[in-house]
Design a protein around this nucleic acid. Structure first.
Lengths: 337, 337
DNA sequence: CAGCATGCGTGAAACGTTTCATTGAGTGCA
DNA sequence: TGCACTCAATGAAACGTTTCACGCATGCTG
């Protein structure tokens, strides 16, 4: 059914090696023979068998990316960025979804190792995966961490500076004259939640402004609503005038709750989120946010990977840290006295 | 660097075939030898080479899905559904993104054909891809169309009945007492846009109710805003009291515009979208919508594929059509007199 | 015209599996 | 004791490429 190089050779009346030459080094074959071979390929509908190719070559042209959640816009953008780079280099990107489940991550890594992928972009579910990743590196398969920085010397990483992002958000609010801020976020075991909070705290240091922290159980719209309800229930004198949410989902929930409590945004309460998801701009009151260069993150990760996997001799493992941007919209567009 | 079966055999002092038996038919090997082999595998850090395996077997255990847009929630959910099924069967799902670009789609198909994937789930960019897909089928690689129905007899397909969805939405509005509806959507060259409209028209037939159609250039929030602005500008007597949008992005835009024009939702204008994206429920006014069983779509597609690729003798190509559900929320929660 | 480079094409080896016919050793039975 | 069997393990062949050392003409140089 599937024609092989051998049948092409027979059909064209040449040797097997010649067909291979036509495929891989066409200029070493005389035009006449080349044409004969190409015709045979066409006639038989021959398609290269990549397994055989890889087996012979010892490595493949596919790069894998293992993400925590395929349906999270953060990762889909990272994937898109990585994709562009990998495809430009003639390779292919395999997307795997760990769904934050360590055992699924483990299974994926097993399969990818069996496939002898050219390289691996990964956001590990937990630090427990690192010994596993070391095996890839020992095998000569480069690994680039995405959105994770670790002291691991053996790999490159790309990430965004979340402390900086938290500071940006808080400074933006301070600049609008706010003296009492709130931070809605949680659980603090999530690095991003903790670091964004840390950045905000740093921005406040020495300004005399206050920060009320409302902890949430997750980063969802519903929890944002709940958190904001707590704040809205406070008497006006003790109520923060600005809310910084650990992500946009929380912020959208907070926005909805605040508005439905009859408070005006941004006049009575300013709100800023984080991530700049597509709907931030489309909210009832367009939402200010902190934008991460997501696609760029993916591109950078893939570039580091290709650089490392190409036999550039002096590859130094690098840790690329991107800086987030503040996107000011209507939800914080008000100066307090 | 990468240990092969041969070295494992040497280390364990057995033949090459025995190692293979330990891996594939452990019960045919005596416990003592088996243990010796497993120890050797551990000691050498041996990992199967999937290329060699596939080459020998003639086929792989990977299924590919080619989607129009990885960052579209519709497809991410479909992917998740397909993933569960494929992984449960011990396989792996490769996600490829055509980005609605026929040439990228073509390149992906080429690579997947070279990889001899076990099967293909695909939402073709254009009908032009069909001859290309036929080649897969001829090769014995089953193809299942996702969210596309065609008269093509050679493949299975899964899709959602968009005409039905359009009818559901319109009937819902009629049931609330509306007599003048609007449909915002476009371009009509997109099948879904046309079919949802068709369903709405069908629902209105014979009721005497009117339908104003506002065509948009795309299915974005901005276009939704623009479309709604057109309607809001009409004098109250000629203005529709309910808007059905071809998707939720349009609906969210419309909602925002309508509210900012000072009209109350749902009292003065009801709005319903389509797709039930995550943010529909989180909008300023929670948005009614039509939900498609997206994950189920992916699961069904993968199941059809596996069924066809397993050598079940009497496989009949099937076209599974799912029915959408109406999700009523606040944006349509008002009866007109 | 001898000698040699050049261009084109050949054929065999190797990549790492799986499979299968075969061998060899042990076991129970007549 | 000898025979038929079973159970383990073996070794070679095959999957489809790529690569590489090698022939064989042909034409050029001196």
């Amino acid at each position: 059914m599937a024609a092989s190089i051998k049948e092409v050779a027979r059909q064209a009346g040449v040797s097997l090696g010649t067909v291979s030459n036509v495929l891989n080094r066409p200029d070493t074959v005389s035009p006449a023979t080349r044409q004969r071979v190409l015709d045979a390929i066409d006639a038989l509908g021959y398609v290269r068998n990549d397994s055989a190719r890889q087996l012979r070559a010892g490595r493949s042209r596919t790069v894998a990316i293992v993400v925590l959640d395929v349906s999270n816009p953060f990762f889909t953008d990272v994937v898109r960025g990585a994709e562009t780079v990998v495809e430009r280099s003639g390779g292919m990107l395999i997307v795997c979804n760990s769904g934050e489940d360590p055992s699924r991550e483990h299974r994926h890594l097993d399969m990818l190792e069996e496939q002898r992928v050219q390289g691996l972009l990964v956001t590990p579910v937990a630090d427990g995966a690192h010994p596993r990743l070391d095996r890839f590196v020992q095998r000569g398969i480069p690994v680039v961490l995405v959105d994770r920085v670790t002291g691991h010397p053996g790999r490159c990483s790309v990430s965004v500076d979340d402390v900086r992002g938290g500071r940006l958000a808080a400074e933006h609010l301070l600049g609008r004259g706010h003296r009492h801020l709130a931070y809605i976020g949680g659980p603090f075991s999530i690095r991003q939640v903790a670091e964004r909070h840390e950045g905000a705290t740093a921005a406040l240091a020495g300004t005399g402004a206050a920060l009320t922290v409302v902890r949430t159980r997750s980063l969802s719209v519903a929890e944002g609503r709940r958190g904001a309800a707590e704040l809205a229930a406070l008497p006006a004198s003790r109520r923060p005038t600005a809310i910084f949410c650990a992500n946009d989902l929380l912020a959208l929930g907070a926005l909805q709750e605040v508005v439905s409590c009859g408070l005006r945004v941004p006049e009575e309460v300013a709100i800023i989120g984080y991530d700049d998801i597509e709907f931030a701009a489309a909210a009832a009151v367009p939402l200010s946010s902190v934008r991460q260069p997501r696609e760029q993150l993916g591109r950078a990760a893939a570039e580091l990977l290709l650089e490392e996997s190409g036999d550039v001799p002096g590859h130094e493992h690098r840790h690329v840290v991107f800086q987030p941007d503040l996107v000011a919209r209507q939800s914080t567009d008000h100066r307090v006295a």
